[in-house]
């Protein structure tokens, strides 16, 4: 699937396109298919999100979304060397998902 991501203009936080808005959680990301360019242009013009771009990802059997590149998996979770600052501070094993 093709999903969209960027950084929130105000906070810089990593966000994912959920079909209507930008979510902090990669699992909310939706497949935009052919519409990537159109949504990116529109959202860029609205200036809520900084330099949004499209990436390849897969939806796993449990419904979770996994970006194809490690860089975007680190973006989705947070720094692997600071589990306390990731989106899942309670589960350090989440780091394994990145790698």
């Amino acid at each position: 699937m093709i999903i969209l991501t960027g950084n929130d203009l105000k906070t810089g936080a990593v966000t994912w396109w959920n079909g209507a808005d930008w979510s902090l959680y990669v699992d909310d990301a939706v497949d935009v298919g052919e519409q990537a360019e159109e949504i990116l242009a529109r959202e860029e013009a609205l200036r809520r999100v900084n330099v949004p771009y499209s990436i390849q990802a897969t939806r796993e059997d449990d419904g979770k979304v996994r970006p194809a590149h490690i860089k975007d998996r680190i973006r989705a979770l947070g720094p692997t060397v600071r589990p306390d600052l990731t989106l899942k501070p309670q589960s350090p094993e989440a780091i394994d998902w990145v790698i």
Binding site: N7, T11, V14, N50
Partner: peptide, 10 residues
């Protein structure tokens, strides 16, 4: 002014 956009934030 030294402000970059990095992976997780500015």
């Amino acid at each position: 002014n030294g402000l970059y956009l990095q992976l997780h934030a500015y």
